[in-house]
Design a protein around this nucleic acid. Structure first.
Lengths: 178, 178
DNA sequence: GTCTATAGGATGATAGAC
DNA sequence: GTCTATCATCCTATAGAC
């Protein structure tokens, strides 16, 4: 029998993103997604050819958005760094769930408790650095530390010594109120 | 028969971290780890009670280091923010492989090509923002954007509007040369 | 400390009826 | 579009010999 809601495909995307964000891609089975929608696994395969393709479609909006952002930045020198940063911030917010759930799959660490331990420490460091629990104050620390942390991942091609000074300087500027 | 090398346990850790970092935790089977070491799965279970426990032991050094860092920060107001940031940077570098391989499990995205797409864009944005390929210059952008991106993940408890201004301001300071 | 053998289960995916 | 039934494969983990 046909189901209550017309747009099953969109419902699947919604549930899948929710579960992936919550438990990670690998640890979410198609059975779980199907159960939550009260359909069968086989029905999923009518709408999506594979689990991987489902993932691809979930990340696609972010990928598209990011590509557009890059394109704009490339074709003309835009209206100032502030505007760029604001736009990038908005982009991250817009795809917050994707960032949270798909760009870092922390499920395994969460299961073992390691993740909580790390995040707890990080959170305390953030608050201590700025001496406040206020989100606006904390953000300075998150930017500074998050930025440094990102270097470890994204600058894998360069020797740490080559950018260490610059990175620390930048983080310091971010941390200190203007 | 006993194996060539005495410290099998350490060899296992080494190989496991390598494979986890490369393919992600969930997608690395104990069979693969065993094969690479020329032992059997059963032998792994002599050294580690479970796959999860193996993971825990791999993250443990980072967790410990981070806890110590927090403790120092807590007990006394340290020698200035610069030193703190430098220490945090060093900590990240020290555990670079863990950050790369375990704190973000990007394996699924990598398999589908989505990851490459996202990282490629991010890399170009970084270079464009500072107008240079020099690592030292790029670091400013990585810090600024990485910091903003981290906000989307770590400040999940706060309303974006509450820290948006502060975060963008901090990122801007990080981006602009002093 | 390492092996063989296997239990016991979940998973992604497909075939074919309705 | 959704179902039932099933396949083939892989997995973590354990028992027990050597």
């Amino acid at each position: 029998m046909p189901r209550r809601n017309a747009d099953t495909r969109e419902e699947i995307r919604e549930v899948a993103l929710d579960l992936f964000a919550q438990k990670g891609f690998e640890q979410t089975s198609l059975r779980e997604i199907a159960e939550r929608l009260d359909i069968t696994k086989a029905a999923l395969y009518y709408h999506f050819p594979s689990k991987d393709e489902l993932l691809v479609q979930l990340v696609a909006p972010l990928a598209t958005d990011l590509a557009a952002f890059t394109a704009v930045l490339e074709e003309r020198r835009p209206d100032g760094e502030r505007a760029i940063l604001e736009d990038y911030f908005d982009l991250c917010e817009r795809h917050r769930r994707v960032f949270q759930g798909l760009l870092r799959d922390t499920s395994a660490l969460a299961r073992t408790g390691s993740l909580l331990q790390v995040l707890h420490n990080r959170d305390r460091i953030d608050r201590l650095l700025v001496g406040s629990d206020d989100p606006a104050e904390r953000a300075r620390a998150v930017v500074a530390l998050g930025g440094l942390q990102d270097c470890a991942v994204l600058m894998a091609d360069a020797a740490p010594a080559a950018y260490r000074r610059a990175a620390v300087d930048a983080a310091l500027r971010a941390l200190l109120p203007a």
